[in-house]
Amino acid sequence: MIGTAVAYTLAIFIVLAAVATALFRDVLSAIVVFGAYSLGMAILYTFLLAPDVAMTEAAIGAGVTTILLLLTIARTTRPSTDRLFERVNVPAVIAVGAFVLVLGTLLPDMYAVGTESAPVWGEQGVLTETPSLYYIENTFGDTGAQNAVSAVLASYRGFDTFGEAVVVFAAAIAVLLVLKREVFT
């Protein structure tokens, strides 16, 4: 009950930070406010019991993203700031609002956080015919890998991981372009 209050207050804070980030005219201020947004998201991830995502958000959102964006604006020119906020682009707001509404209609179909009726728990919270049990029993026979997690990443979802590798590769090339450095010494 009180925890829900904390979560909703956090949600208000995050929405405020996101709107401010989108509307700031000065890029440097937008980067700073984006840091605040990242802080709020990290608390929310922690609150929803996703510690790995929260740690990533802490490291990437607050640390790496800020420095990369600073590097980028250091190598580009900033428009002179005559006013604090950008003008609101009405068609874009309408499009985004419609998208959010569509996503919002799907929300009630999702399982609540930590509910025992989610498929991953099987019947009444007892592991029976669940995906995890299948992987535990059949991974070695299917793939020959001894580590089930590695097998899922590299074999069962091999194409997915391949796509991720392409994304990471593209991101690394973009970082090298921003740094104007082809070889790290």
Binding site: L39, A58, A62
Partner: peptide
């Protein structure tokens, strides 16, 4: 977070 806070 305490470690990373000063970075920005």
């Amino acid at each position: 977070y305490a470690l990373l806070n000063f970075l920005m």
